[in-house]
Amino acid sequence: MKKIIVFMMLVFIIIAGCSNKSDTSTEKTGAETKEKQEKSLSNEQASKQPVLKYLKEGSSNAYIKTPGFGPDKASKINAITKKMQKSIADKREWFETYVSKAKKGEPLPYHSNFGITKEEYGILLDMQNHMKLIKTRETPITIKEKGDQLILTAEKTKTLKTITFDLKNNTVKTDFGTLKYDGKIKPSKGQTVTGE
């Protein structure tokens, strides 16, 4: 679950585009320009650090998006779920026996005791294919470069205030833990929430 939260935070940053408000002044002194050049990573390093294509030093607004359903689909799934939960609660002994006979790793076969139709049960089994990223709110973010790290701060979020991208070690660190980047992530054809 923690990795999912971290992933979703990274997704909202990338989706937002992270337009930055960096200094565009052309009256920089030679010393300032040289310092910036030494501080920035070379093109070769940037190609090995895909995060640099999306995150730039500065401030911007980002969307916070979470997996979910549109209002109509959410309402329908909630109604089906409540009917099924009530029916299962009324037939608890039967349900425990039914579950004990289920094949490991496979969905439970439909039964009329679920209290919903076979079509409604199909909707529940297939609901992951109807999820998408839904914008829940916006938040200001700040990205600062510190040595080999990009530090993203999102003060108005409830769970992740700081995300540290360690460009030297290829890691992303949050309060929930550290994730290692091992290469380009290739989504499967069946990935429906974010799309391929």
Rank of each mutant, 00 (worst) to 15 (best):
Ile4Glu: 12
Ile5Lys: 11
Val6Arg: 10
Met9Thr: 04
Met9Asn: 10
Met9Glu: 13
Leu10Asp: 06
Leu10Phe: 11
Phe12Gly: 04
Phe12Ser: 00
Ala16Cys: 05
Thr24Val: 13
Thr24Ser: 08
Thr24Asn: 12
Thr29Gly: 10
Ala31His: 03
Ala31Glu: 13
Lys34Asn: 05
Glu35Thr: 15
Lys39Ala: 12
Leu41Val: 03
Leu41Ser: 03
Leu41His: 05
Asn43Lys: 15
Asn43Cys: 03
Glu44Gly: 00
Gln45Phe: 06
Ala46Leu: 14
Pro50Glu: 09
Pro50Asp: 09
Val51Ile: 15
Leu55Lys: 06
Lys56Arg: 07
Glu57Pro: 00
Ser59Cys: 09
Ile64Pro: 01
Gly68Ile: 10
Asp72His: 09
Ser75Tyr: 02
Asn78Pro: 00
Asn78Tyr: 00
Ala79Lys: 03
Ile80Gln: 06
Lys82Thr: 08
Lys83Ala: 14
Met84Ile: 04
Lys86Thr: 11
Lys86Ser: 09
Ile88Val: 13
Ile88Lys: 00
Asp90Pro: 01
Asp90Lys: 11
Asp90Leu: 07
Lys91Asp: 13
Arg92Gly: 02
Glu93Phe: 07
Thr97Arg: 04
Tyr98Val: 05
Val99Gln: 06
Val99Asp: 04
Ser100Arg: 14
Lys101Leu: 10
Lys101Ala: 14
Gly105Ile: 08
Gly105His: 11
Glu106Ile: 01
Pro107Arg: 13
Leu108Gly: 06
Pro109Cys: 05
Tyr110His: 07
Tyr110Pro: 12
Ser112Asn: 11
Phe114His: 03
Phe114Gln: 07
Gly115Lys: 07
Ile116Leu: 02
Lys118Val: 10
Leu125Gln: 14
Gln128Thr: 04
Gln128Met: 12
Asn129Gly: 12
Met131Asp: 04
Leu133Tyr: 11
Lys135Gly: 02
Lys135Trp: 02
Arg137His: 07
Glu138Val: 13
Thr139Glu: 03
Pro140Leu: 10
Ile143Trp: 06
Gly147Glu: 05
Leu150His: 02
Leu152Gln: 07
Glu155His: 01
Glu155Ala: 07
Thr159Tyr: 14
Thr162Met: 07
Phe165Lys: 01
Asn169Phe: 05
Asn170Gly: 00
Thr171Glu: 06
Val172Trp: 01
Lys173Glu: 01
Phe176Pro: 00
Lys184Pro: 02
Ile185Met: 11
Ile185Thr: 09
Ser188Leu: 12
Ser188Lys: 15
Ser188Asp: 12
Lys189Asn: 08
Gly190Ser: 05
Thr192Cys: 05
Thr192Ala: 11
Thr194Ser: 10
